[in-house]
Simulated scan of single mutants.
Amino acid sequence: MRKLLGLFIALALVALLVGYAIWIGDRPVGHYLSDLRIHLVVNEGQPGERGNLLGIQPELFPADYQSTERLHRKLSAYLQQARDQGLINSKTIVVLPEHIGTWLLASGERNQLYQAQTIQEAMTWLALSHPWRFINAVFKAKGGNRLDDAHMRMKAEAMARDYQSLFGGLAREFGVTLVAGSIVLPEPSVENGQLQIGNGPLFNSSVTFGSDGLPIGQPQRQLSPANHQRGYIRPADGAPLHVIDTPAGRLGVLIGSDSWYPRNYKVLNQQGVELIAIPALVIGNDRWNKPWGGSHHPMTVSSIGLNPLQVSEGQAWQRLTLSGREYQSNARASISVFMRGQLWDQGSSGYSFASHAGQNVSEPLPDSQAAHGARLINIWL
């Protein structure tokens, strides 16, 4: 009887292991109808020979990341609509929001991940789908939050490859310079025209692609990520701020709250910056209109002269970012571009804005017709 029971248990375990192996190897792609609406909400200046800064504020959901083909279809539809409106030429600089590349870690996964109710649940499905890869990533994790570090690290090689293929491909397809938001990768670098990863800590980084589809210079690392990200994203203290040559002028990239620091504008000035792209993200539905959470950022309230109790998140972003002008920024134009949509239980808010020729231009609050869908903000130089 014992032998029979042992045999039964052994067979059951084998069946479970075989079933689990089949499950983690199966990657069905479900049908998904993308919302390709996009509204031109700012079109400042007159078309000319100097080009333009074109911010695309996409509206994205988990299913958009089910495959790079699906995400390409959505982003290329946005760009095509911009082209149809005469907003794309050989001197156009397209700017996408912060972390648009980070969620490539969800590409090619099982349907349960996209149907999850929370990011935590989605990451649990990710780990279950790649158990050995996840365990290996946990041992290699560098951050204080080893689980979040491992989730990012376990698919970093594929993420880097997909990031360059997708965003470099879009830049080449539409003949533009494209600031590809940002992506979290371990020690990213460009070698022989290819985005590579290392074995060290994770950095939130942005790559700018030329119209030939290749990276221009090295990835720009975020110098000062917010406190809640520092458990797995390493601050790039001492990393250089790059200024690159584009057909529209010398371009610098400040990721998110790096745009708040006057010293960063001074460094860009020393390199002859003319244009500044700011990929940004504000997490939380309607947080834009709620009291600013400045006390949660490494920059102290006293050092910036803003009281979180007296300003909203949106007011703080505009006053801090545009304060670069007060410190004699040489850039003739800058643009801050935010994400829209809902990634699991993590909503996003934020309204793009720009500075051009000494004038501040803000994206208007959406009316009932433009409440959904992506948004375009265009500044002619």
Rank of each mutant, 00 (worst) to 15 (best):
W317V: 11
L170I: 05
L13V: 12
G45S: 05
I88A: 03
P219T: 03
L241E: 06
V282D: 08
V282C: 03
M299T: 13
Q328R: 13
L126P: 00
W292A: 14
Y114H: 08
D84S: 15
P308G: 10
G169I: 05
Y261K: 13
K3D: 13
I276Q: 00
E326W: 10
N89F: 01
L241V: 08
W380P: 00
A63C: 00
G200K: 09
H242Q: 12
M339P: 05
G30H: 05
S257V: 11
S257W: 01
N289K: 14
L376P: 05
T92I: 07
Y20P: 01
T177H: 03
S189T: 12
D148V: 02
F61D: 04
L40C: 07
H31A: 12
H228P: 06
V311S: 06
T118F: 10
D345G: 10
A106H: 11
H151T: 12
S76P: 07
P97F: 09
S302L: 11
N192C: 03
L54Y: 03
A374P: 02
S295G: 07
H296M: 13
P247R: 06
A171F: 06
G200R: 11
D237C: 00
I24P: 04
N192I: 00
G6C: 02
L17C: 14
K142A: 07
G293S: 08
Q85A: 15
K155A: 12
L214F: 14
F174V: 03
H242E: 12
Y232W: 15
I24E: 06
G373S: 09
N136V: 01
M123G: 10
W380V: 01
G272K: 12
R332P: 01
M1G: 13
Y32E: 09
A357W: 02
H130M: 11
S329W: 04
Q164F: 01
G305L: 09
G373F: 08
Q310S: 10
L113R: 10
A122D: 02
E49V: 10
L128R: 13
G249T: 03
S205Q: 09
P240W: 02
G217C: 11
P97I: 09
L381Y: 00
G198H: 07
V301R: 08
G272Y: 11
R325N: 09
L7R: 09
Y32K: 03
M1S: 13
R153N: 04
H99G: 00
L254M: 11
R319N: 12
L309F: 04
D84G: 04
D35P: 05
M152N: 15
A82Q: 05
Y32R: 04
S336M: 13
N204P: 00
Q369I: 07
G175V: 07
G6Y: 10
W380H: 15
L170Q: 04
S334H: 09
V179T: 09
S362M: 11
L322Y: 10
A127V: 12
S224K: 02
Y163R: 02
S257L: 00
G168M: 07
D258F: 04
H31G: 06
R50T: 09
L214I: 09
R70Y: 07
R83M: 04
V361C: 08
A116H: 08
V243I: 06
G181W: 03
Q196P: 05
Y78E: 05
Y20F: 15
M159Q: 13
G373R: 04
Y327G: 06
L306Q: 12
S189L: 08
L275E: 01
Y351T: 00
L113Y: 08
L54W: 04
D212W: 06
V337M: 07
I216E: 03
